[in-house]
Design a protein around this nucleic acid. Structure first.
Lengths: 128, 128, 128, 128
DNA sequence: GTGGTCTAGACCACG
DNA sequence: GTGGTCTAGACCACA
């Protein structure tokens, strides 16, 4: 299910967070779908259950998933409202990256093309 | 000159690196302009000179600045060549962010507009 | 494991970097082998752990080793690609040294022999 | 006469030492030829006379030049004897570099060719 | 346990 | 004056 880079500088739990976030955003994990149980995933990835736990807690606090005690963790359906703050943050990041690409010599054309390609792949339907 | 968040999880020296990188990319700090002396900046920010030095050293190894012992630290003029690897990384980040914006409800139109606005501001001249 | 010259003008951390680099290049330290822990090595050499860490950090940014926080530091397997710049630098050094050897009276024959001997020892297999 | 990189990390006096050493080894500065006076050179290079002084002192202690008080500094003729120690050092450097080139993927053939080319250019006559 | 961060304060090389 | 090096010792995050 996941591929972790145990050699990476990035903490394992953070890699997990990013991977799961990615799967959710790409709609691979559907809304309200149950995530693998902590122990199961720990077994599969042969890493410490505490690390999984930490990743899930992190995802929960960032509102990508929700947990029901005794039942498990589930993908939280995205709400297209009240995300102003988050979108603002993302827009700032976007600007920063565009600027940095220009600084390193990317042509405006190349940047626009890249964005449009990405949008063509994912922007047509509703989240995927 | 800078605003640091001493409570943040991000190390101070890394915040410094990011801020200065930003100032350089935004051409606020011009090529070959001298950066504040280690001790001076440390005094202004009331943090340890070693922390500043660590940030400067990091920026130097990432080729954003250069330091001349006994003289000071200076903004390194950008060379727009052989940045393939860096640009690749940035493009991946770009894709990720576009995807995440879509997930949080931003319309493709809004994203494109934002990018074009940014390019209009900075893509015409020479990073300025 | 190492011998340091504390009186030398060369900084301790730099001597460390050179020694370790040498051990890696000579395949004494094998790829993915763990380096001594910062505190352990500091204890053995009776120098400050920060100095060791500085050396390790330097080696990491030069891509000779990689560090996993909480795990340790390890020898990074060499990738023989895109080292054009580094090889160029080394070739210049090579020329300089050959020239200097001639100046101090070494015969061309002696120089060639020395190089060939070195290549015979290490150029046949895979750096071993 | 010289080109100094005032932005380089390398101290100016050291750059001077290297440049002059190079000129001597390449026989551009002939044996017993007088070097430019400290003040003159300082004027030409617009750097501090102390820096020139330091470079000359360094070259003298390394036996590349000799100074006659009140007269000036002169190129010291190379003696092809008693250079065993120096040649030993150079051979070690040579080995180190060859090894490092191999490590970074240079073929033995490429290394040999480079050395032979250098020898062809400079190894025919007596010092150049 | 590991490496990473930060502080306080000393000393040195350079120009 | 500048940046560079080093020490001593504290605290934190990760697994």
């Amino acid at each position: 299910m996941f591929e972790l880079d145990l050699r990476s500088r990035a903490p394992i739990y953070e890699q997990l967070v990013d991977k799961i976030k990615e799967l959710i955003i790409n709609n691979v994990l559907k809304p309200d779908e149950q995530l693998p149980a902590v122990r199961v995933l720990a077994g599969e990835l042969t890493i410490n259950p505490n690390t999984i736990q930490k990743a899930y807690r992190e995802l929960e606090s960032r509102e990508y998933i929700y947990s029901i005690p005794g039942k498990g963790s589930f993908v939280k359906p995205a709400v297209s409202e009240n995300n102003t703050a988050r979108l603002q943050t993302l827009e700032n990041e976007l600007s920063r990256i565009v600027l940095e690409m220009l600084y390193f010599g990317a042509s405006p054309q190349r940047i626009i093309t890249r964005v449009k390609t990405q949008l063509a792949k994912n922007g047509g339907g509703k989240n995927g």
